[in-house]
Amino acid sequence: MDLARILRFAAVITLLLALQALFASGLVNPYYIRVLILCCFSVMLAVSLNIIIGYAGQFSIGHAGFYAVGAYTAGAFTVYAGPPIRQALPLDRLPGWLEGTAFLMAAICVGTLFAALAGLAVGLPSLRLRGDYLAIATLGFGEMIRVVIQNVEAVGGPRGFSGIPIYSSFFWASLFAVAIVWIARNLARSRHGRALLAIREDETAASVLGVNVTKHKVAAFVLSSALAGCAGALYAHYEGYLEPRSFDFIRSIEIIIMVVIGGMGSTTGAVIAAVILTLIPELLRGLAEYRMVIYSALLVLFMLVRPQGLFGTWELSWETLRTRWEKRLERP
């Protein structure tokens, strides 16, 4: 690690900690904090889904399913494995916040791992399918996941899973949102990311250049699912309560809408669209029953006016800003 990167990392942590301290002080309306945290979850989901839809060009409508796997397995871990672990280890000597953090990190690992496994189990068979058929299959798997959860009494079944300890906070949600954006951006700049873009553009041409199409698709799918699972684990320990209905295919579609509106393949776009689309329903709250009508009408209008999304495939980075600046200078 070079110094610049360590400094940047420290700066981000400090900023997020400072914000956390501000929010904990009670000076900010808790409603705003909640909306901000919801934005973080949307960002995590949209950016992770963009890896499979935007980069690899594989249309998946089951993202909420992997989010659910992460949330439920992480929640089940702290609820069921938490007490025996506490008995076995002398955790009570730790300060409370450290104990919570340790459990949160373990739960995130569990949620991420199980979501990755689910991604592998779904991705291996279904990524042989293309286009609409893949979309339909992932929709089917996503709904299956939800139906299975609904039938597991240990996690509350259709009534919902309550009593999950609340360990998550603005700091963790925002930190992981930043981390996921960072991972997606790193991937895009590597040969593996370019292989995904090549697969999106033309599978045949990519394969004759030595890109193992199946392997890269499955890897992208697993990564995307794992990141959704990580988001799920954080969500479970933020809300403390999960219900199957909040992970149905409508939720998957909401995430897709964020990716498409942001411009498929653009992480910048996914972040901004995730924030905007989380804010709009909140901003329209005053309009009561007109809210969702306006939201859906806006969605259709947007697609008609700007089908390529907000950013197309454009990415915010020093490089693109510099190229744009240089082009401007070249022009007399």
């Binding site: 897709i256 498929m264 029953e289 969702m292 009508v293 859906s296 697609m303």
Partner: peptide, 25 residues
């Protein structure tokens, strides 16, 4: 959207679906 990417069309269809549900509500 006849010439737009198919995903755009799909999202539009989803938008219309939500619109009809909410207008009915």
């Amino acid at each position: 959207l006849r010439t737009a990417p198919r995903l755009t069309l799909l999202i539009t269809a989803i938008g219309v679906s939500l619109f009809l549900q909410n207008i009915a509500q």
